[in-house]
């Protein structure tokens, strides 16, 4: 049931030492509740049972070996767009500090 690739896999010191870290990963393949996911050149098998309707090619946030939530590409673009478009509101106290 637990895929063999979980047994022998690259160990990253950064990932091991920071338990709260959750990183964006791209889903490469899915099989029986587990998926091979990629972040840059880093590849590992993660459990995807918390996200029932996951598809190959989608991005997830992975935390402690589990995909905990999907990333919505539209919303990501939107939040970047909002930053670009916020008008500069001045309260007349520029250079205060």
């Amino acid at each position: 049931m637990i895929p063999a690739s979980l047994w022998a896999r690259p160990r990253s010191q950064i990932l091991i030492n920071k338990m709260c870290l959750a990183i964006p990963m791209k889903i490469k393949s899915i099989k029986a509740g587990f998926a091979v996911a990629e972040a840059g050149r880093f590849r590992r098998t993660i459990n995807v049972q918390l996200l029932p309707s996951l598809k190959i090619g989608e991005f997830v946030i992975a935390h402690a070996g589990f995909a905990i939530q999907k990333i919505d590409p539209e919303k990501a673009k939107e939040s970047l767009r909002i930053i670009d478009e916020i008008p500069l509101e001045s309260n007349g106290r520029k250079g205060f500090f």
Partner: peptide, 9 residues
């Protein structure tokens, strides 16, 4: 910059 201009005293 936007935060600076918005921040109250």
């Amino acid at each position: 910059e936007k935060i600076k201009s918005l921040a109250p005293m």
